[in-house]
Each structure stands twice: as structure tokens, then as C-alpha cells.
């Protein structure tokens, strides 16, 4: 997908690298962060079209990152996909409240993640 910018935030450097490569190979511009605090700063600076973030990160968790982003009008509707290795899924109530687009469990398929992101972006473009 051309001219689309995505942010991947994960404290696992290997995950960041592999996701970044998959998306760059498919025409995305990718910005990366290895903690929640840096991810927030990067969002404000880079204004990505979509955010893919890990749930459990140092500094700020993925949920805290979304909470903080939703307070800013420019990020009120930005699509967010959460990756989680936790044993329990995120509660529906929290998903709805923070308008989290999707929650994907680790281990995940980069191909599947790409397809989900493209779907989400297509729908948000149609709107």
C-alpha cells in the first residue's frame, strides 16, 4: 500500500525488525519504537496512518499509549492494532472505550498482520 505510514512499537527488537521489513517490502513507510514513551513522541512527530503496538512495553503500555493518544483530536480516530502475548485477551469494554481496531495474539503471522492493516486502511479511506 503506497504512501501509507505505520508505526510499530514493541520492546522485542526482533519483532519490530521483522514487522518493519514485511511492511516496507509492501510499500509502507515504517517508523519504529521500542517503548511506549518513544512511540507517543513518534506519533506526534510522524503522524502515522495506523499504529501497531505491543501490549506490554516498558515506559508506557500499549493501552496507556492509546489512552494518551485518544486525548488528542488528531489521533481520535487513528486505527490501532494491539499485539499481545498475555494469557488473557483485552476486555471488550476496554476495546470499545479506546476504539481499538483489533487485538492480535502473539505469535502472529506477519502476512496476516499486513492483510489486516491493509483492510483497516482501505475501510478508513472509504469513509
Amino acid at each position: 500500500m503506497e504512501n501509507k505510514k505505520m508505526l510499530i512499537a514493541d520492546d522485542e527488537i526482533h519483532i519490530v525488525q521483522v514487522v518493519a521489513m514485511k511492511f516496507r517490502n509492501n510499500g509502507f513507510e515504517v517508523v519504529t519504537a521500542d517503548n511506549g514513551t518513544d512511540a507517543y513522541k513518534l506519533c506526534c512527530e510522524e503522524k502515522p496512518d495506523i499504529i501497531v503496538t505491543d501490549y506490554q512495553m516498558p515506559g508506557m503500555t500499549g493501552i496507556e499509549l492509546v489512552e494518551k493518544l485518544r486525548q488528542r483530536p488528531e489521533f481520535a480516530d487513528i486505527p490501532v492494532i494491539i499485539l499481545t502475548a498475555r494469557g488473557f485477551a483485552i476486555e471488550d469494554e476496554q476495546m470499545d472505550k479506546l476504539r481499538i481496531t483489533e487485538c492480535m495474539s502473539k505469535p502472529f503471522s506477519p502476512k496476516e498482520l499486513l492483510s489486516h492493516v491493509e483492510n483497516v486502511l482501505e475501510h478508513s479511506t472509504v469513509k
Binding site: 519483532i15 521489513m21 502475548a85 505469535p107 502472529f108 502476512k111
Partner: peptide, 23 residues
């Protein structure tokens, strides 16, 4: 335990898929 086991497994799954897909 789930988190700690799934984290390295996520890397193994993603990198092996990338190899299989010729990325």
C-alpha cells in the same frame, strides 16, 4: 508464563514465515 513463552515463539514464527515466503 504465557507471555514469556509466546514472546520468543512470536519471533520464531514470524522469521520462519518470512523465510518461507521468500521475503
Amino acid at each position: 508464563v504465557s507471555h514469556e513463552l509466546k514472546t520468543p515463539l512470536a519471533s520464531i514464527t514470524a522469521y520462519s514465515e518470512m523465510l518461507v515466503e521468500g521475503e
